[in-house]
Amino acid sequence: MRSVRKSVIRKANREIKAKFSWKARAAYLIAVLVTILLGLGSRVYSSRLPEFVANHFGDALWACMIYLGLRMLWVNRQLSVALWGSLLFCFAIEFSQMYQAPWINHIRATTLGGLVLGKGFLTADLIRYTVGIVVSWALDQGCQKLAGSNTRRDNDKPLK
């Protein structure tokens, strides 16, 4: 009798987790799309924006999009996993720009390749990426607290 009750509870918990996961993934997807639009807008309308915004926000928003994308993929993991994962990814892309072989420069010459891989290494980009990711992480933490979601979904440990 007791094992039947436990299996029913486990099944209900899995269903709740699945519903939460899809809602959270949808919210992160919307955030990713909004961030992409803002980032592209910061490039297209750079002449109409303040110089500081035009010079720095595009890269920070790109890093923000990477963070949000990782959160969408890893919705049940700790926020710090996406924080460190996105920093590692962004830094790897930036350092890869030191490699200037003809085949990768051909990819970088395309619009999508240039947006994803960048063109050349800039130390300032590392700072922009870090700021974008840390701001995204802080906003994500705030949203988690506002939503009352202060535990991980997979083992009920507090988020860090």
Rank of each mutant, 00 (worst) to 15 (best):
S80W: 08
L83A: 01
L83T: 00
L83V: 01
W84L: 06
W84R: 03
S86H: 02
S86C: 05
L87C: 01
F89A: 09
F89C: 09
F89G: 07
C90K: 08
F91A: 14
A92F: 09
I93K: 08
I93C: 06
E94V: 08
S96C: 08
Q97N: 05
M98V: 13
M98T: 11
M98S: 12
Y99R: 07
Y99Q: 15
Q100W: 10
Q100K: 09
P102H: 04
P102D: 01
P102Q: 06
W103I: 00
I104V: 02
I104M: 00
H106F: 06
I107F: 00
I107H: 00
R108N: 01
R108S: 00
R108A: 00
A109C: 00
T111W: 15
T111N: 14
L112S: 04
L112W: 04
L112Y: 03
G113L: 02
G114V: 03
V116L: 02
L117C: 01
L117V: 00
G118S: 12
K119S: 09
F121T: 07
T123W: 15
T123A: 15
A124V: 14
A124T: 12
D125Q: 11
L126A: 14
I127K: 13
I127N: 08
R128T: 13
R128K: 14
Y129N: 12
Y129Q: 14
T130S: 13
V131R: 05
V131K: 10
G132Q: 09
G132I: 06
G132N: 12
V135A: 07
S136A: 05
W137T: 05
G142N: 03
G142D: 02
G142E: 07
C143Q: 15
C143D: 14
C143R: 09
K145G: 11
G148A: 09
G148S: 12
S149A: 10
N150W: 08
N150T: 08
N150I: 07
